[in-house]
Amino acid sequence: MTQAQVQKTLYQSDLVAWLDDTAIKLKQRQFEDIDIDSLIEEIEGLAGRDRRELKHRLVVLLNHLIKRLYVNLPNDYRGWELTIREQRRQLTDLLEQSPSLCNYWVEIFPVAWKTALSETREDYPQFHLPDEWQFCAEINALLSEKFWENHE
């Protein structure tokens, strides 16, 4: 079995072992022994993972903002606000680590809004929810403003 076949087999059978082995080979500059195709696949996967995380957290944030703004259940406000705070913190960390995701945020906001709105409508059909986000949709505003304080 060639070194490339060994690497491919390791990649398919034990990702962590493959990652450790690849890191060692990179540090030792043993580039000829690295499974380049799998390395490319993993690097591309990392970018996709961060985009998926951003979208997921944005949907959760919007879902809880919608509930806090439009679902009149005062006993639930505190829990929704805690979730809003946590999602904002996680999104801020993600955007600080990868500022280029700001461009993706702008791209996926409409999709995230529709998803969050649909979920909230399904959970709370008795409440009227607007079809469009009625507040500032800029990243900084969504990550900091307590929209409900001016809405009530």
Rank of each mutant, 00 (worst) to 15 (best):
E81M: 11
L62N: 07
A47P: 02
E53S: 12
N72F: 11
R68A: 13
G79M: 13
E81Y: 15
H64W: 12
Y70E: 09
K25F: 03
Q90F: 01
D50L: 04
E81F: 13
E32C: 07
K67A: 09
I36D: 02
I40C: 04
L69G: 06
H64N: 15
K55D: 08
T83N: 10
Q90N: 03
L73I: 15
E42P: 04
Q30W: 02
R88Q: 14
E81K: 11
D50S: 00
E44A: 08
L61D: 03
R29M: 02
E86K: 13
L82N: 13
T22S: 11
L26E: 04
K27D: 15
I43A: 07
E41W: 04
Y70F: 15
G48N: 15
A23V: 11
L26W: 03
W18L: 03
K27A: 00
I36N: 04
R29H: 00
E41L: 03
W80L: 12
E53W: 03
L65W: 13
N63Q: 14
E32W: 05
I24Q: 13
Q90G: 00
I84G: 01
G48A: 09
V71I: 15
I36A: 00
W80E: 07
G48F: 02
E81T: 12
Q30F: 02
I43G: 01
Q90K: 15
V71S: 04
L65C: 12
Y70V: 07
S38M: 05
K67H: 04
W18Y: 12
T83Y: 06
F31R: 04
I84W: 09
K55Q: 13
Q30L: 05
N72L: 11
H56N: 14
Q90H: 10
K27P: 03
E53P: 00
D50C: 01
Q28F: 03
V60Q: 07
E42M: 08
